[in-house]
């Protein structure tokens, strides 16, 4: 039972961390290697909110706004010239991640920061005392996935984004301003990444390099998911299960690389990953 809960909550955390990266990759076909930096920025928004004496939950909207604003600037200055050079976009965003990491270091120092707990304590479930926050993560993942789906399926921006994904040439020919769709998508994806950073604070220590540790796992999941939130949810469950099982029964170190290895193998066998499954 504990394992099952661990699997579900691990999958939820993976989903939260990957959602912003997926939103950007799905529409723009660009891998935002500064994703780790946005997670860090989000976590430091929680630090700032605490210093300002705000309610810890206020860090969530703050992080989304800061992340989206930074995303807007980054899309305009760095991503826009590189849509036709996707490999270079990986590198430029990686460089951007270095820059953001160093700026945070200059502002806050390289020490670990303490953030207030969003939700403490445990709850009795199936005869176990389980971390309340990990259970909340499942709710958060469902909310994030649900709002992304609602945004994509239910709004005009979402419709335009889907049109750009399916057939960008036709979308342009119908007069859709694809540059604006891209800008909005990148801003929302970056906002989601920063939001995820806040949600990570109770689970991990906050320091200027915290994001990098999460980047590769998120990146592999997104490659396997291909661009669909549903496929991402499946991928998170499968890979979360593997990670928990390998960590529990074999070794935690191998557990941490199992996601990456499994993703590489899945992509070797089926280049489109879970998107068709």
């Amino acid at each position: 039972m504990l394992i099952l809960l661990d699997v579900v909550t691990t999958a939820a955390i993976l989903f939260i961390v990957s959602a912003g990266l997926l939103a950007i990759f799905g529409v723009l076909k660009i891998i935002n290697f500064a994703h780790g930096a946005w997670l860090t920025v989000g976590a430091y928004c929680a630090v700032v909110a605490a210093r300002l004496g705000l309610n810890p939950w206020a860090a969530l909207p703050l992080a989304f706004a800061v992340g989206a604003a930074l995303g807007t600037v980054a899309e305009w200055l760095i991503i826009r010239p590189l849509y036709r050079r996707p490999l270079d976009a990986i590198l430029a965003t990686w460089g951007l991640g270095i820059v953001i990491g160093q700026l945070i270091t200059l502002a806050f120092g390289r020490d670990v920061q303490i953030t207030p707990n969003l939700l403490g304590g445990t709850v009795a479930l199936f005869g176990l005392d389980y971390s309340l926050y990990r259970l909340f993560a499942v709710l958060a993942a469902v909310l994030i996935g649900g709002s992304c789906a609602a945004l994509l399926e239910g709004t005009r921006l979402g419709l335009k984004a889907r049109a750009v994904i399916m057939n960008e040439a036709l979308a342009r020919a119908l007069g859709i301003d694809t540059a604006r769709v891209r800008l909005a998508t990148f801003a929302i994806g970056a906002g989601l990444s920063a939001l995820a950073g806040v949600l990570l604070t109770p689970l991990t220590s906050v320091d200027p390099n915290m994001g990098v540790a999460w980047l590769i796992g998120a990146f592999m999941l997104v490659m396997v998911a291909g661009g669909s939130f549903a496929a991402l949810a499946v991928a998170c469950l499968v890979f979360g299960a593997v990670q928990v099982l390998v960590s529990t029964f074999v070794s935690p170190i191998l557990g941490s690389i199992s996601v990456a290895v499994l993703a590489a193998v899945v992509l070797r066998i089926s280049p489109r990953g879970f998107a068709r499954a």
Partner: peptide
Amino acid sequence: PFLWQLILGSAFVVVIILLP
């Protein structure tokens, strides 16, 4: 220590975009 990384990172971004 941090400034060096910052300069290097910025130079990298600029070179990738402008001087591939």
